[in-house]
Computed example of a mutant assay.
Amino acid sequence: MSADTSSHRVPIEPQKVDAPLTQHAIFLVLTVRDSDEARAAVRAGLGSISDLVKNVSFRDLTGALSCTVGIGSDVWAAVTGQPAPGELKPFQPIVGATHTAVATSGDLLFHIRADRRDLCFELERQLLAVLGDAVDVVDETTGFRYFDTRDLLGFVDGTANPVGPAVLDSTVLTEDDGPGAGGTYVVVQKYLHPLDTWRALTTEMQEQIIGRTKADNTELDDAVDGQKSHKTLSTIVDENGEHDILRDNMPFGSPGSGEFGTYFIGYARHLWVIERMLQRMFIGDPPGLHDRLLDFSTAQTGSVFFAPSADLLDGLGDS
């Protein structure tokens, strides 16, 4: 049973963090230039996001186009003029004995999703035209849905996602959580995979590392002690129960350049849940026994954002 699953009422309209899984996505991370003019331009641009989405989605109303906007701690006050959510802060690097979760720059995140690649492309194009020289692109990753929602390692991804009313319980802040009601914390990391090395493992070894069977996605028993699987290390349970997050990871890559990876994006009502998950993965539980998946997944980026309510976002154009 998940924690905090009592009646969860959000009087403020959240962004569409629970948009359905789509065939395509763009993960766009920007920095805001250090000037009052740039911050004002960003504020106005963010206030127009909903109109941009409507204009582009009108070309195909069945295309499931959406855009979730996250704002980083360094520009939160200047862009929103609102008190910062209690846990909002820059990504904290996690240094394990073998692997490191790196921190990278990022003031704005745009998670663009649709069932058509051209809809994602057109929204990104119009968005960057609106923001102009007020921003700089630091990362642009194009993801795609791979077969039956598998990652490039061959395993089904996102199995542990909450469903139904539990999605709001796990992701969206209420007024009881302080500043940020209707919003959600967002953590992104870009991982690269050495697929040749991974594929050299037996299927049984791969399954032990992941904690699920490869063919039919059956959950394997948790290890009582010693080395734990990725599934176990990324599950956070305490005296209040299990704390879920919402993942909408996407594979990305280019066979021509030999680049293959997974773009991790996690939405959570409490940032500490994702932080603890990453600590267990990179440091280990017990310490020293890190997540063996990291031997085949190298983190290239790491950033934290807060996706404010749709109401707050729409209102930025009026400020």
Results as ranks from 00 to 15, higher is better:
residue 10 V to H: 06
residue 11 P to T: 02
residue 15 Q to C: 14
residue 19 A to W: 13
residue 35 S to R: 06
residue 43 R to T: 14
residue 45 G to W: 01
residue 57 S to N: 09
residue 57 S to M: 09
residue 62 T to S: 13
residue 65 L to V: 13
residue 69 V to R: 15
residue 72 G to W: 00
residue 76 W to P: 06
residue 77 A to K: 12
residue 81 G to W: 04
residue 94 I to D: 09
residue 96 G to W: 11
residue 107 D to A: 09
residue 109 L to F: 10
residue 113 R to S: 12
residue 122 E to Q: 04
residue 123 L to N: 00
residue 125 R to D: 12
residue 128 L to N: 05
residue 140 E to S: 13
residue 141 T to Y: 05
residue 141 T to F: 01
residue 144 F to C: 03
residue 145 R to H: 02
residue 145 R to P: 00
residue 150 R to F: 08
residue 151 D to K: 00
residue 163 V to N: 03
residue 168 L to M: 03
residue 182 G to S: 10
residue 187 V to F: 03
residue 190 K to S: 08
residue 193 H to I: 12
residue 194 P to A: 12
residue 194 P to L: 06
residue 195 L to W: 12
residue 195 L to S: 07
residue 205 M to G: 00
residue 206 Q to M: 08
residue 208 Q to E: 15
residue 211 G to H: 03
residue 213 T to C: 11
residue 220 L to N: 05
residue 220 L to P: 10
residue 225 D to R: 10
residue 228 K to N: 09
residue 230 H to P: 11
residue 232 T to K: 15
residue 239 E to W: 06
residue 240 N to F: 15
residue 243 H to G: 04
residue 244 D to L: 15
residue 251 P to D: 08
residue 253 G to P: 00
residue 256 G to I: 14
residue 257 S to L: 15
residue 263 Y to V: 02
residue 271 L to I: 02
residue 272 W to R: 14
residue 279 Q to K: 08
residue 290 H to T: 03
residue 291 D to W: 01
residue 297 S to I: 04
